[in-house]
Design a protein around this nucleic acid. Sequence first.
DNA 1: TTGAAGTGGTGACTTAAATCAAGAAAACAC
DNA 2: GTGTTTTCTTGATTTAAGTCACCACTTCAA
Lengths: 194, 194
Amino acid sequence: MSNFEAFFDYIQKISGKLLSEDDKHLLTAHFKTRKLRKRQYFLQEGDVCKYIGFIVKGSARTFTVDEKGHEHILKLSVENWWLTDFESFYLLTPSRFNIEALEELEILQSTNAEIEEFLKKIPAFSAMSNVISQNNTIAAQKRMQAINYSAEERYEELVSNYPHFLQRFPQNMIASCLGLSSETLSRIKKNALK
Amino acid sequence: MSNFEAFFDYIQKISGKLLSEDDKHLLTAHFKTRKLRKRQYFLQEGDVCKYIGFIVKGSARTFTVDEKGHEHILKLSVENWWLTDFESFYLLTPSRFNIEALEELEILQSTNAEIEEFLKKIPAFSAMSNVISQNNTIAAQKRMQAINYSAEERYEELVSNYPHFLQRFPQNMIASCLGLSSETLSRIKKNALK
DNA sequence: TTGAAGTGGTGACTTAAATCAAGAAAACAC
DNA sequence: GTGTTTTCTTGATTTAAGTCACCACTTCAA
């Protein structure tokens, strides 16, 4: 149950609204705990992403594989983040992404239809969804700006926004996530020490 | 009034819901028509973006100016798009962007507080907002993928998504929007002709 | 109608970052 | 504890794209 406590706290904090006991029961009834071992896939390219997961414990990476067989990480996800391919999840189209557990992963998962229900029935859930959408829109704007950033600037931004990622994830994944080769990132870190 | 007809059509089409006569009156009462001449600013860097505009006619660019004085276009906007700096508009913080009319521009504009009211009172408006949020989230995901795209790939993507932009906007703006120098874009187009 | 500003094209050169290759160091498995 | 992946670093080379310089063509304003 402590899984759900953290989840409820998250919803209330983000939305600025309280969950009633009924709300909590509804959520508890529909969100299923799921555990994935390290390296296990939450989603494989070509499948429809039927679930959205709230990360209780652990981390995951979302990545694509290009024609040359190179992997590109789009996103690293940790506790209290939502895990899904939104495009596939919303539109029910086959996903172009893979989502893989990087550590022992524990999530609370639910389906699109259930989420629709929560949005209708739970004011705090719907308010949370709106806040997340707002943040997403703002983040999307910021990312447009980042087109012209140099490798150093992209790295500095990550350091200031997600400093704990540096300890948690190997450098080659950080590099991939920033769209850099791991050699370049290694050199950037060396220069930054001066 | 025909301005509003197009606006109502847009809301109904995107949301999949109909607007009642009351809904329409509420919108008509609060959205103000505003015209900007070519080169006029809708928003200047440092100001809070108090308004959101729905473009009825014309186009605009959202851009920043870096330390070296170079302009970077983040977005080109045309008819039936929303015009605002979402970060500044939602959070009431000073904007880092400029928004300038590229052609004679006609918009329907409203404030944050009014939008909140529409979201509460007009189901079609709220449904529209949700659909736009969904699309935004999907677009944000796609943009993450684009980190590793080459100049050619970025250009090809624009050609397939927004072919009419090529006629409508000068090449140097398209280039800036793609994060390329105009020389590079010129060379890409030359190669593409083969 | 004639500058002036804006736009687009091309060549020469520079630069940032990728790629290739090889070792060192750390983490993990048995 | 020893071997085996995995991760990180460093150097040499290549490549994509930026920068600089210049010219041609159009549009537009006075």
